[in-house]
Structures are given as structure tokens and as C-alpha cells.
Amino acid sequence: MATRDAEATKARILAAAVAEFAERGLAGGRVDRIAKAASSNVRMIYAYFGDKSGLFDAALATALRRLAHDAPPRPDDLTGWAGDVFDHHRRHPDVLRLSLWAQLERPAATAEPLDTYADKVELIRRDTPAPFSPVDLLVIVYAIAQAWFVSPTGLTALEGAPDDEERIAAHRAAVVAAVERILHR
């Protein structure tokens, strides 16, 4: 008889939950689809995460921690960090989509991974230029880095195909330049 690896099962469930909730949100996400995608079963999901909301919160925390790990703030290069955040959202659109669903359907869940935000604030605290607070600066960098991905396609297509590599590179450069100008006005 094969032994069960609880951590591997949880990881598969969380990966499937991130994908499902990023695509359909909390209300549209289905636990049975998550179980099937994770090669698990609904009973295990409820055993590990309590209920669908608990699974959503865990999926969101997982996605946000992935962003924090993959694109940690660089206090000595906040403009470069803005580019890193842009790149992460391009590679992992599910993280941003899941965050947006959370803000719409379960705003309290977006406060869950406070440790990841608190760590970022502490990293940049000493290098934050006036008149910004570290929180202001984080919000500004995130907002600018995410703008391309949350803007209407009709707008982003005005200067070329939104998925054109050259266009994406130009937008990334604009993100970095915008943060640079804000920081060093």
C-alpha cells in the first residue's frame, strides 16, 4: 500500500485552488474541480482547509507568498523592484487575478498574509524618501506595476497588440521610469 504524503497533497490542492479561484473567484470556484485537478478528493480538502472559504484564504496566502518570494523588495533599487513585480504578474497572472477576486468577494482575506506585507515595509522603511510612508510606497509600486494587467484591453491595444513582446518591454520600461520619477522628482 502506498503511503500518503500529506504535504504533497496539500501542495497539489493549493496549486489547483489558486488556478480555480483565479479563474472563477470564490463564488464560481468549485471544490470538486479543485479535488479532481489535484488528484485528491473533496473530503481531503475539507480535512485540510475546513471549508471552501478556508481553502480560498489558503490559496490567496500561497499566491501572495509566491509573489513575495519571487519579487522581494530591493530597498537599494525600488525602480528595479517595480520591474520585478511587473515581470512576476506577467509570468503568474493567477496571483493578481486571485488578489482581485479576493478584493471583490472576500476583502478580509486580503489582510491575511500580513507578515509578507510587514516584512516588505520593514525592508524599505529606512530607504523610503519623503513624503512617502513605506506603505504609501508599496501601494504606489504595486499599482504602477499592475496597471498594464488590469487596464482594459481596448486601451492597451491602441498602440499595438497587448501581447506583443516589444510592446510589453516598452510598458515595463514605462513602469520603471514612472517609479523612478516618483521617487526622484
Rank of each mutant, 00 (worst) to 15 (best):
P93V: 07
E20T: 10
G50A: 03
A8T: 02
E23R: 15
A161H: 15
V85K: 05
V135I: 14
T3H: 10
G54I: 05
H92A: 12
P73H: 02
L60R: 08
R90I: 11
L104N: 13
I144L: 06
L55K: 04
E159A: 15
A22C: 07
I34V: 09
H184Y: 06
D119G: 00
L138C: 14
G25C: 03
D87I: 03
I144F: 00
L123G: 01
R185P: 14
A8V: 02
E166D: 13
L114Y: 07
L138A: 09
S39L: 11
A19K: 09
A59N: 09
P162D: 10
R167G: 10
P107H: 11
S39H: 12
R97F: 02
I124Y: 03
P152T: 04
A58L: 03
G28H: 06
T153M: 09
F21R: 06
E7A: 12
E105F: 11
I168P: 04
R4T: 15
N41M: 07
I182V: 14
A16K: 05
L26M: 09
G29P: 05
V150P: 03
D164K: 09
R65L: 00
V18I: 13
I182F: 04
E105H: 07
F86S: 07
E20G: 11
P162R: 09
A68I: 00
T116I: 12
L155D: 04
L100T: 12
I140P: 00
T116E: 08
A82H: 02
A22D: 08
E20M: 07
G50D: 01
R106I: 06
L155F: 10
R125N: 09
L138W: 05
A47M: 08
V85G: 07
